[in-house]
Design a protein around this nucleic acid. Structure first.
Lengths: 250, 250
DNA sequence: ATATCGGTTTGATTTAGGTCAACAACCATG
DNA sequence: CATGGTTGTTGACCTAAATCAAACCGATAT
């Protein structure tokens, strides 16, 4: 069975469908023309999907690096740790995203990756990916783009952490989630948060109480409706406004 | 003349010297065994060093992407911009570092790079670098490591921005600079800041006044001595303690 | 149903750092 | 060597978010 081309998630998003015949590995095989033979090769490289239960570690900081991981289904967080034990969530990762690239630099993982719900990942042995990308320039380019995208993403988070205030951060976070769900064919307006307030807070550089208060405020203003982990965005325009219009700190 | 192997900076740091016969492009040619022929090829690819005056843009956000840049001498800052005009310094970059990798993802630069002092950069056409790295696996791996290192660096900054308090951030910043100067053969204890308090603040997610106060506090405590832009670290242990020992926010 | 436990909400209070303002130092330029 | 402009320091004050604390909610287990 073809591991890459078997997607159970909704597929009513045209671009996804057309670009990569129902492939869950969005990032890896989406927008670049590979021949069937090349796809075949790529497919051989990717290991069979393996399940990860909620709470399981995909990898731990310090572990030696072998593979990148493509998330087939589910949700992960990555977090870095300071010596003194304090930790910071560096990202939430969902279906179609590839994680583990931080480990290339030292051949050891530099953060933990933990499943936030029962998930499936495909392991991509990095050595072999490099090898293959030597033969397939468009794959090479694509790999570079994926890594670069991670850098750009991180810069965005630095901007958020360095110069936005609490409500702005949360609005940005919600809009980002919304957009990512949308691009996978899910509703951009209603979704389920897989992470706790504390994890959101850690990611956004806020305390969980602040996150909770901001949620409540948005709800009172009718911008969103919150029911524990279920979010419904009722006024996306207002949310975008919250995100941008706030007095800046810089 | 060999552009890569001509370094005017002090070279009394053994590792630098031995690994890459007096090459300023630390990141690009430091720790991986290339044959002379391969080095030759790499050398041909890199453009002749071009000067940039203080204040000049190396590239601007939005500009189309052609090349990475290796900093031969001098100092740069990179900054991202929010729609609403607020901007955040994402990094300070010095001799031997390579910048521009954020642009690979979209074929357009996503941040500005500005010289903080008169500098020299070597342009590295990215297409040709990719091409060459297909033929030279160790170059390929090295390129990946460089990109990955940028991701790791960014995660560190996210940790700083998300969970450290002002003085801790500044201590971390100073120690990082110190360490980078040291690894280039300069003194780790005394150096000249090329950036303003405001730029430091932007990078650290603080206001310039807060940066200034933290400097003053460190000086009063005898940890450093500040003379405008000249810094002398007098008690590196205390500085490290400041960095780690603070009550955490997470 | 009742207890338990992790997660969440909400309120009261404190505080780190932002804001505003004045001034001092350090330039570059005429 | 004045002089205007940027950059840096310091003080007084204010506010956003942290902290502390209590209650609440929704699961799962008893």
């Amino acid at each position: 069975m073809n591991k890459l081309h078997n997607m159970t998630a909704p597929v009513h998003l045209s671009q996804l469908k057309t670009a990569c015949s129902s492939c869950s590995l969005q990032e890896l095989c989406l927008p670049f023309g590979l021949s069937d033979a090349e796809l075949e090769q790529l497919d051989n490289l990717v290991q069979r999907a393996q399940p990860k239960l909620r709470g399981e570690y995909l990898y731990r900081a310090g572990a030696s690096f072998q593979s990148l991981y493509a998330i087939r289904t589910g949700f992960f967080k990555t977090q870095v740790m300071h010596e003194d034990g304090r930790e910071q969530v560096t990202g939430f990762h969902m279906m179609g995203e590839i994680i583990g690239m931080d480990a290339i630099s030292t051949d050891h993982h530099t953060c933990d990756a933990i499943a936030l719900e029962d998930s499936e990942v495909c392991e991509i042995p990095f050595g072999r990916l490099e090898q293959l990308s030597r033969d397939i320039p468009s794959l090479q380019r694509h790999l570079h783009k994926i890594m670069s995208r991670e850098i750009v993403r991180d810069h965005g988070i630095m901007l958020l952490l360095g110069s936005m205030k609490a409500e702005e951060r949360l609005a940005t976070f919600l809009l980002n989630l919304s957009q990512r769900f949308a691009s996978r064919g899910y509703s951009p307006n209603g979704f389920h948060l897989r992470m706790t307030r504390e994890e959101i807070g850690s990611f956004l550089g806020l305390k969980l109480e602040t996150v909770s208060r901001a949620f409540s405020k948005f709800q009172k203003e009718g911008i969103i409706s919150v029911q524990n982990k279920s979010i419904e965005i009722k006024d996306i325009t207002a949310l975008k406004l919250t995100m941008g219009q706030q007095e800046c700190r810089t």
